[in-house]
């Protein structure tokens, strides 16, 4: 499979072209910002009627990644549903498909700002997995004692590079020595450029981006460029 492995906090992790993060030794798969039900929510609020296929598409990507990696555990880093109504009112066919997938792996929901009550028991905000802490929104500053790295989502990072054939913008992982911000995984999601001030608290001189959407590829983030 077209993946890129890299070293993070002493662990060997892999970036998948879909935006999932794979931890081979533990057989864990991480995804962020699925935004299930986005088109439904827009329609409910009287807005435009987008093609209602994003749940299918996102499920298809998940099924593919789980199948390819053989993951035993799947961890969703928040904003899995576009709002809580979407979580309870999924179309039957899609709910069945999600449940089938949930039957295959050990599944964990972390709550996000869109779905604060996601998951059984509702609203797990922080999860500790080995030396990693998982939450929806990265917290600036140092990590809790004994923790080597933080995984989060929320910001939908994207980055552009200037190539011989012009400028190419792609969704990306933002990787700093102590944290990874995952790209949005859901089909109907946009991106926020790493140059946006929202990323400033997390950027360090040795931060890297792994561009996805095609073959995953790592690029350094030139701070001057990012600070524009």
């Amino acid at each position: 499979m077209n993946m890129l492995s890299f070293d993070f906090a002493g662990l060997e992790l892999c970036a998948l072209p879909s935006g999932a993060l794979w931890w081979p030794s533990e057989q864990r798969l991480f995804v962020a910002d699925l935004h299930f039900g986005k088109s439904e929510r827009l329609a409910r609020r009287g807005g435009t009627l987008l093609p209602p296929y994003e749940v299918r598409e996102t499920l298809e990507r998940l099924e593919h990644d789980v199948g390819e990696t053989g993951a035993k555990e799947l961890l969703c880093l928040g904003d899995s549903f576009d709002d809580m109504t979407c979580a309870t009112q999924m179309r039957p066919a899609e709910r069945t498909r999600l449940q089938t997938l949930q039957g295959k792996v050990d599944w964990h929901w972390i709550a996000g700002n869109h779905d604060p009550n996601a998951g059984i028991g509702g609203g797990i905000a922080v999860l500790y997995v080995g030396p990693l802490v998982l939450r929806h929104i990265a917290e600036p500053g140092s990590l809790p004692a004994g923790i080597a790295g933080e995984l989060s989502g929320h910001f939908h990072p994207k980055h552009h590079v200037v190539t011989r054939g012009g400028r190419v913008a792609r969704r990306c992982f933002l990787i700093t020595p102590s944290r990874i911000i995952l790209p949005a995984y859901g089909a109907y999601t946009g991106g926020l450029a790493l140059s946006d001030p929202a990323f400033a608290p997390f950027l360090t001189p040795d931060s890297r981006a792994i561009l996805i959407g095609g073959r995953p590829i790592e690029v350094p983030i030139l701070l001057r460029e990012a600070a524009q």
Binding site: V161, V162, T163, V168, G214, R215, V219
Partner: peptide
């Protein structure tokens, strides 16, 4: 596009 991005990444 992958080739272009790879080239650019090397340059960066």
């Amino acid at each position: 596009r992958d080739r272009m991005v790879a080239e650019a990444a090397e340059r960066l």
